[in-house]
Design a protein around this nucleic acid. Structure first.
Lengths: 196, 196
DNA sequence: CGCTTTGCAATACACTTGACATGCTAAACA
DNA sequence: TGTTTAGCATGTCAAGTGTATTGCAAAGCG
């Protein structure tokens, strides 16, 4: 509805297209979380976002384009949350940084639960769709690099172990087999060993 | 085509219905692996199985019933493979048993690759569909019990860590981020610690 | 003020989906 | 041998899908 134009010189027209796309992506997340990823249709997403289906199509030429953007947006959203969490640590040790990163991924809050569900959905898609596999591999690599930077050279494999243990814990926590606290306890035991 | 009737006294009719259902379930697996789980339609499954869609519907009243049976069948298939692998170990130590179980789950052979893909697909479904979540929790619990039996009472949590690390490694191996050997190396390091 | 372009809504379209109904074939049994 | 019934193939159907098309209001600009 508003028409103020940020990014003054480079966007001469009307609305903030990037913000619209992000809003739609968030609607995608909610649909995935509640209805399941197999039911993500353009109509459902539009309804969830409170907009018309034509608008979704205006911003995303195809459904796949929408999903790809959603995947990207999730990466950025997680990254932003993670950065904020790290910034909240005063004078942090490598172990504290690592712990913050890993526990931030566990489904504890409403947001992280959503992200875990979405992550699994895209992961499932990646199994048979190489384009998504490539995108996910990139995301993995970025996080792994951050983790590895917290560990000494001779213990780089601990970063892999910690990260993929966390990934493996997403499932049981989401399904209610573990609480987030139980999963955190497992992670802490592993952290003690990695940073012994 | 054949009509010999096994299970003599209790199945007086004609074909081996259980075998038919298993064959269809295997077709479900192949479709999931190659086309992706979102594309599992009754027609595709029937075509993959080389039968008519009517036959699939004859054995499974609904699509969900078919998928549930497929999930169950996968559990049995994995269990049978695992049992065979364990039986091949002469005079095994607990550590060897544990290692055999975990590495059997990693996507190395054609079969285990398929099982991993199918496992992820059902896992994704379970996020928004409680019935599948319950079924998966049962499967988890069964495997966890087997693993826990290999470890002393004061190290039960090692079973959880090992198992969910393995689950977390399914992804990167399937997506080609790791080879099965690299994942096995990570598992071995963890096994050494659990059984130290 | 015209005039163009952007932003979007509405609809039409070609297909696919799961479910259901019908009908035929052959085996089992009386 | 006649009847029943299991086993299956085929067809139909309503609902839902992604995409393409059309129309139109308003903002930007000359």
């Amino acid at each position: 509805m508003q028409s103020y134009c940020q990014r003054g010189h480079s966007l001469p027209k009307k609305v903030d297209a990037a913000e619209r796309r992000r809003a739609i992506a968030e609607a995608v997340f909610r649909v995935i979380e509640t209805t399941g990823s197999e039911a993500v249709s353009l109509r459902d997403v539009a309804a969830e976002a409170g907009v018309s289906m034509g608008m979704v199509q205006h911003y995303f030429g195809t459904k796949d384009e929408m999903l790809m953007f959603a995947l990207d947006h999730m990466g950025e959203r997680v990254g932003r949350r993670l950065q904020a969490r790290l910034a909240a640590l005063p004078d942090p040790t490598p172990k504290q940084v690592t712990r913050a990163m890993l526990t931030e991924m566990l489904p504890s809050t409403k947001e992280s639960r959503q992200e875990a569900a979405v992550s699994i959905a895209f992961f499932n898609r990646a199994v048979a769709t190489p384009a998504y596999a490539a995108a996910l591999r990139d995301g993995y690599q970025r996080l792994l690099n951050l983790l590895a930077a917290q560990l000494p050279r001779d213990r780089q494999h601990e970063a892999d172990t910690l990260f993929f243990l966390t990934q493996g814990l997403l499932g049981p926590v989401l399904l209610g087999h573990f609480t987030a606290e139980q999963a955190t306890a497992l992670l802490d035991a592993q952290l003690d060993r990695a940073f012994a």
